Simulated scan of single mutants.
Amino acid sequence: MDGQRFAEIARAAFGKGRRLAGVERLRGGSKKGVYRLSFDDDGPGAIVYVWSREEDFWPAAADADPETPFGHASGLRFFEAAHGRLRGLGVRVPEVYLVDRPGDVVVVEDVRGGTLEALLRDDPGRAGRVMDRLAQSLEAMGRERAPWVGKVEGTRRRSAVEVVLEQALRDLDEAAVRVGRIGAVREDFESALREMAADVEPRADHGLIQGELGPDHVLVDDRDRPVLIDIEGTMFFDVEWEHVFLRIRFHEHYERLRVDGLDEGRMRLYGLAQHLSLTAGPLRLLDGDFPEREFMLGISKFHSGQALEFLARR
């Protein structure tokens, strides 16, 4: 979008009394454009999310069946559905100032307290308070139940284990082609996935999860409350999927988020599935022109090693 379009969006959100002073594109987004608006007064800034093919670094094939649990959740409708559900549970999400539905654009609050990732590094004491509140949010989400798996506006009725196994086998096929060490033991990985999936007991209902909740997807507001962002993939699913990802991303800090009653069989299956996903996914993203190439290659290399270690321990 050009400067004129951002000026129009700012005017629609805040009226003619505030003049746009600057637009800064923020780093990190792979499915949408994220821009910070600043103004020539003392009032708060704002964040603009823009969903479009031009702002999406993933290959076009990623758009296939976005309604599925792991489908390509990109667009205003996914944001709105997740935002409404999370806010209804008392989970802190950015305030919405403007929705431009035809343009697939939303203007939201600029939460300026930084990420929880940075706070864990720079101020562990304060971060501990935020982590405890994040744990409360996750508990509230886990108590919200549905008899199906899928995005919050969906009605999918397949089991979570079936969905994970199917996706993990696709990721395995791709990783085996792209990573020689994975390809050399592809059949062993497939056997392990199928055996673990067969051992998991069926489940009748599922909790609400963000889907990829790392400390970089949690902002901190001026009252030390965690603010969830990148929420478009929010879905009803096994909470174990969320907790495997939390364990990977929060490292030693995960203990503050751990909950009782998690199914260890699911945790093992989902752990291997996520290592394979984080091996193949970054490489798939790099088929396009995503700029942070070394970072993505590092993620893929680390998780291919983790997958191989997992297999060796069985």
Rank of each mutant, 00 (worst) to 15 (best):
G90L: 02
V91E: 00
V91L: 01
R92H: 07
R92M: 06
R92D: 02
V93K: 10
V93A: 06
P94R: 05
P94I: 12
E95Q: 03
E95M: 00
V96Q: 08
V96H: 06
Y97S: 13
L98W: 01
L98M: 03
D100Q: 05
D100Y: 05
D100C: 05
R101N: 03
R101V: 10
P102F: 04
P102M: 02
P102A: 04
G103L: 05
G103T: 01
D104C: 13
D104E: 15
D104L: 13
V105A: 01
V106R: 04
V106D: 09
V106K: 06
V108S: 02
E109Q: 14
E109Y: 05
D110N: 13
D110M: 07
V111G: 14
G113P: 08
G113E: 10
G113F: 05
G113W: 04
G113I: 02
G114P: 10
T115S: 15
T115Y: 06
L116P: 08
L116T: 05
E117K: 06
E117D: 07
E117T: 01
A118W: 05
A118E: 13
A118R: 12
L120Q: 00
D122P: 02
D122R: 14
R126T: 13
R126S: 15
R126N: 12
A127L: 02
A127E: 03
G128K: 11
V130T: 07
V130S: 07
V130F: 11
V130M: 10
M131C: 09
M131G: 05
D132V: 15
D132Y: 11
D132L: 15
R133V: 08
L134D: 03
A135C: 10
A135I: 12
A135K: 12
A135E: 06
A135G: 14
Q136G: 13
Q136L: 11
Q136E: 13
S137R: 07
L138K: 08
L138D: 06
E139D: 14
A140F: 01
M141T: 10
M141L: 08
G142Y: 11
G142Q: 09
G142E: 12
R143T: 09
R145L: 15
R145W: 08
R145C: 08
A146T: 00
A146E: 00
A146S: 08
P147N: 11
P147H: 08
W148L: 13
W148Y: 14
W148S: 15
W148C: 14
G150C: 02
K151V: 00
V152D: 05
E153Q: 11
E153H: 08
E153A: 09
G154W: 10
T155E: 14
R157C: 02
R157D: 02
R158S: 12
S159D: 06
S159V: 02
A160G: 12
A160N: 04
V161D: 15
V161Y: 12
E162K: 06
V164G: 13
L165F: 04
L165I: 04
L165D: 02
E166S: 12
E166G: 03
E166A: 14
E166C: 03
E166R: 09
Q167N: 15
Q167T: 15
A168L: 02
R170F: 05
L172F: 10
L172H: 12
L172W: 11
D173N: 13
D173M: 05
E174P: 01
E174R: 14
A175I: 10
A175W: 08
A176H: 01
R178P: 10
R178N: 07
V179G: 03
V179T: 01
